[in-house]
Amino acid sequence: MNKGVHPLSDLEGKKNEILSAFQFRHATKEFDPDKKISDADFQYIIETGRLSPSSFGFEPWKFVMVQNKDIRAKLAEYASGARKQLPTASHFMIILSRLPKDMVAGSDYIRRMMVDVQQLSPETVQGKQAVYDHFLKTGFAIEDDPRVMFEWACRQTYLALGNMMTAAAMIGIDSCPIEGFNREKISDVLVAEGIMDPEHYGVSVMAAFGYRLHDPAEKTRRCAQEVVAWVE
């Protein structure tokens, strides 16, 4: 058998394992405060976020772990959707997204990503920058609207969050994505605490991780026939 090719039984087992993780995962509203995620397990979760895809590979995210109880309490004042999660979650994450000025084709950040991180040749940098500029101005045509530009970058952070929640579920760790917060007030707290640089970042989404305190209700979803369309 060729190296790297799994037997069919292994592939079927892996598929079942992944689907089981999706069945296990639910938006956990309250965690067991006495159960903590190990450092090794959470580093694994973060690594799946770090390795997640992003448009053009420009990674517009930053994952901020808020473990300080006093800061969590301040956040809770402006996060109605996280009132139970903030005091009980083992790990509480705020995902920041790059602001539009960092995401335009000619920014220092985009150039550093291409040169230092992606290690592209000068010719490739020039070509990729031109393609990206065209995408922002003509393809998606979003560069003229800063709000749309920011929300486009935020959408990419959800790819990383989805991967982290699935990775957590694969090892029996619960999670909850959270949008129930006042973005302006939360930003003010993060800036005042020296956590977020408002010149380069804005708040995208929150997420809590830990171990469930209560068993969830049975998962419900629309049937496949309602959500899948084949065009052949």
Rank of each mutant, 00 (worst) to 15 (best):
K84R: 14
V104Q: 04
M103F: 00
A82K: 06
K84N: 14
R98C: 05
I94E: 13
L96G: 08
Q129M: 10
K101V: 07
M103L: 02
V125K: 03
A79S: 13
Q126V: 15
Q118E: 10
A79I: 10
A89S: 10
S121R: 14
A130E: 13
L86R: 07
L86P: 01
L96S: 08
G81D: 11
A82Q: 08
A89N: 10
M93R: 03
M103Y: 01
F92I: 01
F92N: 04
L99T: 09
P100I: 00
A79E: 07
T88E: 10
D116N: 08
I94W: 04
P87M: 04
L120M: 11
V117W: 07
G127C: 08
Y109V: 15
E123Y: 03
H91W: 02
S90F: 00
R111T: 15
S97M: 09
P87D: 11
G106S: 11
A82E: 12
L120F: 01
A79Y: 04
R83E: 14
I110M: 03
V117T: 12
Q85A: 07
L120G: 12
Q118H: 03
L120H: 06
I95K: 07
K128G: 11
M103I: 13
I94Y: 08
I95T: 07
S90H: 02
R98L: 12
V115D: 15
R83A: 11
S90I: 06
Q85V: 06
V115E: 15
R83I: 14
K84F: 01
M113H: 04
R112I: 02
V117S: 12
I94H: 05
G81F: 00
S80E: 15
D116M: 02
I95V: 09
Q129C: 12
Y109L: 06
L96H: 06
R83Q: 12
A82N: 09
R111A: 10
L99N: 07
L120E: 13
H91G: 07
L96K: 05
R111W: 07
G81S: 04
Q126T: 15
R98D: 13
H91T: 08
A130S: 12
T88F: 02
D102P: 01
L96T: 06
Q85W: 02
A82M: 06
I95M: 12
